[in-house]
Design a protein around this nucleic acid. Structure first.
Lengths: 225, 225
DNA sequence: TTTAAGAATGGAACAGTGTTCCATTATCCC
DNA sequence: GGGATAATGGAACACTGTTCCATTCTTAAA
């Protein structure tokens, strides 16, 4: 890795950490997690693997950086809401949509605890939770639950998307097949699963996600009262 | 793969799908996700890779099966609570502890949507949610939020555990370092992160997780009323 | 008891991965 | 100009999951 960024770059088309990260994001977006290889990256950047390693520590470092790029972009464009709750909803949806559009960010964020992308999200959530009031511990609990719910559910949703993609079917056929399987389960052993096959077929992941956020927000109100 | 299990096995020590899965669980438990390789598995079972592939489709199949074994074991030993809410808490803690003890189950479950281990957990949650009453859609929303929260947060926690393990530090030093970093952040840009450094250092993941469950349960009550 | 079929085995080979190493080139400062 | 060093590109390495195949074992029929 270069000690510091040079004042004047070698040439206009010179290999840069940023150029590498951009190429990595493109590869991840169009070919999924498995699509990011140093071979493919070398080819796209018209260079060798060694040159990339001059700017990048290792693959984990690269994916985290790509992740950071998406998160920064997302938090920039997520507008603030009228009140704290609306702002939290907007933020939650922004993260959900970003991870839905870039599924690899879901699993990458899971592995990047304590690093900058997470820190940024925590801060944004926390600033809104603060305005809801409550003791320091209550604020911690609220922010913690929200963060984990947001990362957890968004990541789960992204994993489902990728699972369907990998196995070559789209969301609706996947849910249709799953619903059919569930409806044929043993009624004694699986009464609940059988009872929700209709919701399984017709539900909206994004709406359910938001409903969960509202559930937590309602819980925060109830606990503070 | 063998068509069906043979009536009389070749010999007492014969290679079985179950024996392979058991060995896989052991490897995953003591060496983490990266520790499960067909080389290590072959050595432990004193056989070759080809013999394993006779019983197992591929690595994904193997990990899912290992996951299923842990989930089944967990749901068996998780006792039921006095009332629905207590039962949900007990179940949530059971899953959390199981994933905490076998961190690889967290990411494996994330990738196994719609398969049997998930189905079993859904059913257990749903049966308790049902007893809380509410409309079918409300039950779906509640079960969905709980399932995603449980899987998401437990998985997140497991990822943290593995991250610390991989980077060779234990939980407390990891949190200590993170807390120090956060306390030195810019006060204008990161007021919330700075304000929770104490909670970050001293918090209990398991307690926070349970607090989140209670938040959701409180939200369910509030929504139904 | 012999025999043919097929279940099961173990290990060699293959394509692909992340990473390291190194000879070579470009750029800057004196 | 001439070092010194930043930066490059590609060959080599150790490792992975998976496939292939010659060989062994087990079973059921002849």
């Amino acid at each position: 890795m270069p000690r510091k960024s040079r004042t004047s770059p070698r040439r206009e088309e010179s290999l840069t950490r940023d150029r590498i990260i951009d190429a990595a994001v493109e590869l991840l977006d169009c070919s999924g997690e498995g699509g990011l290889t140093f071979r493919a990256l070398s080819e796209r950047l018209a260079t060798g693997a060694g040159a990339i390693y001059w700017h990048i520590d290792n693959k984990e470092d690269l994916v985290t950086a790509a992740c950071e790029a998406i998160v920064a972009r997302t938090l920039e464009t997520t507008v603030e809401g009228a009140n704290p709750k609306a702002a939290i909803r907007a933020l939650a949806l922004g993260v959900f949509d970003a991870i839905d559009a870039h599924p690899w960010v879901g699993s990458a964020l899971t592995r990047a605890m304590g690093q900058q992308p997470i820190l940024r999200i925590v801060e944004r959530i926390g600033q809104q939770v603060r305005q809801l009031g409550g003791s320091g511990d209550q604020q911690w609990a609220a922010a913690s639950a929200l963060l984990h719910y947001i990362l957890g559910v968004s990541g789960q949703n992204a994993a489902n998307t990728q699972y369907a993609r990998t196995h070559g079917l789209d969301r609706s056929e996947f849910l249709e097949a799953m619903s059919n399987t569930w409806s044929q389960l043993d009624p004694v052993e699986y009464p609940f699963a059988r009872s929700v096959t209709h919701q399984l077929r017709t539900h909206d992941d994004r709406a359910d996600y938001l409903a969960g956020i509202d559930l937590i927000l309602a819980g925060i109100d109830a606990h503070r009262a």
